[in-house]
Computed example of a mutant assay.
Amino acid sequence: MTQEINLKSEISATQTGQRLDQAVAELFADYSRTRLKEWILAGNVSIDGEVVTRPREKVLEAQIIEINAQIEEETVAEAQAIDLDIVYEDDHILVINKQAGLVVHPGAGNHDGTLMNALLHHCPNIEHVPRAGIVHRLDKDTTGLMVVAKTVEAQTHLVAALQARDITREYEAIVMGTMTAGGTVDEPIGRHPTKRTHMAVHHSGRPSVTHYRVAEKFRAHTRLRLRLETGRTHQIRVHMAHIGHVLVGDPVYGGRPKPPKSASPEFIEVLKGFKRQALHAIRLELVHPIDLEVMSWQAPIPDDMVALTKALRKDTEEHPEDMLY
């Protein structure tokens, strides 16, 4: 079974002078460098409408890169009966509240037990929609709201809305350190230069914008509300780490827990026991792709983050002298 791939993106100012194979690896990070290079060599990649077959071709700002190719599906995900917390469903879209630990797509080390497997069981006809209707991702251990397209028409409209930044995605997070005010992180994100599975703020990365505001201050931590303008891999986790406020529990960017001075043994255990990034997609707003109705949903904070917040409040109450007002 083959799948048509049609991708389009624009070269940013920071990518000017890069090789074509490097640029497409950043622009279309969902695909392997090997596959992208094969598409270049096969004549499936064009710059401003002209086919280019040299991976070393230099690219310039504002050039339009297009990929039109076919791929043989190497593995077909199987339908599996996996519980889903369905927040909303109609004939065109499905909104779920994803639980921690659920991988979105099958991949290396996660061949089944994923959201895609669950969707194929819940809605068998979704196998006819590319990527089983998945139009955006949440990391394995990030919880919260995701919208899924049940038809090709709905997926086409949702993807366009995401690219136009017409879908509102808001998150709750708990970070290390006390933040006094909100702000915006406007820094490009790309693959880490040496750690393949990591992302990083990098001058040659893709434009990435995260807005955040302080929701609650604790003695040595802060609860944030964040809104994405762009949707890069690990965006919130990377941007918060970049400004020195890593997410509590983040196993990739966070390092070891750092309890504040004089913390109680119980509070230290809570911090050490929080093994995932404290990040939850709390609100989703979009225009329905078919009915054109503005719709929004909110997902309650998961129990583990509720418990963490309670522990942080207790620690703060026990040490009021450390609070900065």
Rank of each mutant, 00 (worst) to 15 (best):
T34Y: 05
T222V: 06
T75K: 14
L120D: 13
L312W: 06
L312H: 06
R165P: 01
V104M: 07
A62Q: 12
I40Y: 15
M295I: 10
V95L: 08
M146Q: 07
H136Q: 11
L162P: 00
A132R: 09
L60H: 15
P55L: 12
W39V: 07
M199W: 04
S32H: 07
V214E: 03
V129K: 08
Y253W: 14
Y253R: 08
V175E: 13
L286Y: 15
E187C: 05
S262E: 10
L284E: 09
D48P: 03
L247N: 08
G183V: 04
G255K: 04
E73C: 02
I5T: 08
R131E: 14
H121G: 09
V87W: 12
E321L: 04
I174D: 11
R276C: 00
V159Q: 13
T168S: 13
V246K: 12
V87A: 08
Y325V: 02
I243V: 12
A149R: 09
I64P: 10
A299N: 06
R313F: 00
L84V: 01
E50I: 15
G133W: 07
K140T: 05
M176T: 05
T168A: 15
L102I: 01
R169W: 07
A263Y: 00
M295H: 10
I64G: 02
S12P: 02
E216K: 08
V294E: 15
P207R: 14
Y212H: 05
I126F: 02
I301C: 08
R169V: 03
L7K: 03
D21S: 05
E321V: 04
I268L: 01
K37C: 04
V214N: 04
G205N: 06
V159I: 13
G254Y: 14
V103L: 08
L312C: 13
P257C: 05
K258S: 07
H211C: 02
K258G: 00
V152I: 14
H111I: 10
R313P: 04
G273C: 02
H105I: 00
D85W: 00
R213G: 01
M199H: 09
I82G: 02
T151A: 09
T184V: 07
